[in-house]
Amino acid sequence: MGQALLRVHGLAKGFRSGSEQIPVLADLALTLNQGESMALMGRSGSGKSTLLNLLCGLEHPDAGVIDIDGQHFDGSQAHDRRAQSRCWADLRRQRIGVVFQDANLMPAMSLLDNVRLRARLAGQDDLGCLAWLERLGIGALADRFPDQVSGGQRQRAALAMVFAMQPALILADEPTGSLDRHTADDVADELFRLQAEHGCALILATHDAELAARCGQRLDLAHLSCSAAPSPSSMSSTSPAPADRSQ
């Protein structure tokens, strides 16, 4: 067992819908060591995306503590949000890679430029970016734009971006959700292969039981979350939500 990269306890999050407060997560705890993987399961609206957003600082918890990569974040200290946002931004820049179901790439830039941009933001050399695309089998498409390649190829490029930044933790939100079975399997294979090779931790939100089975741990939010009712659409989407949305 590796060193604990992520510790969460007492985590709670709810959303306001008009005057009504809808709880999504309550008293959630989890631990993830370096190199480990965890699958987040649960039906739509169970809080998978919300939890991922909390774990990369795109949303602030109502309560609870997150210790990640040596940084401590306390959800009860609302007054310190601005400083916490800056710390989260630094973590996302260098240590946490996020992969969404789609639209991970800047549409006006080539695949290679997207990877370069992500690598440079993380403070990495961009010389190896083409190599990452080649490792994922799309080196020949490096100069193509996102709308000129298939969905599977776009997701491979997204993986190249994440690995080019050499993260400690990858948060993947339904990364194969928009792909056909065959392509989804290929992309998932690449994800697990590189994660194992690279030694980073992985949290994967998915509906796919087979995919979840490939992870070391499983967290079924359907049993943990407070509300199984679908959240308002703007909150349940796999969106990179604003940091102060809960305010």
Binding site: A89, D90, R92, R93, A103, M106, P107, L121, S239, P240
Partner: peptide, 11 residues
């Protein structure tokens, strides 16, 4: 969405 990706990437 794409501008917010910049924030996701750590800006």
């Amino acid at each position: 969405w794409y501008y917010r990706l910049l924030a996701v990437w750590g800006l």
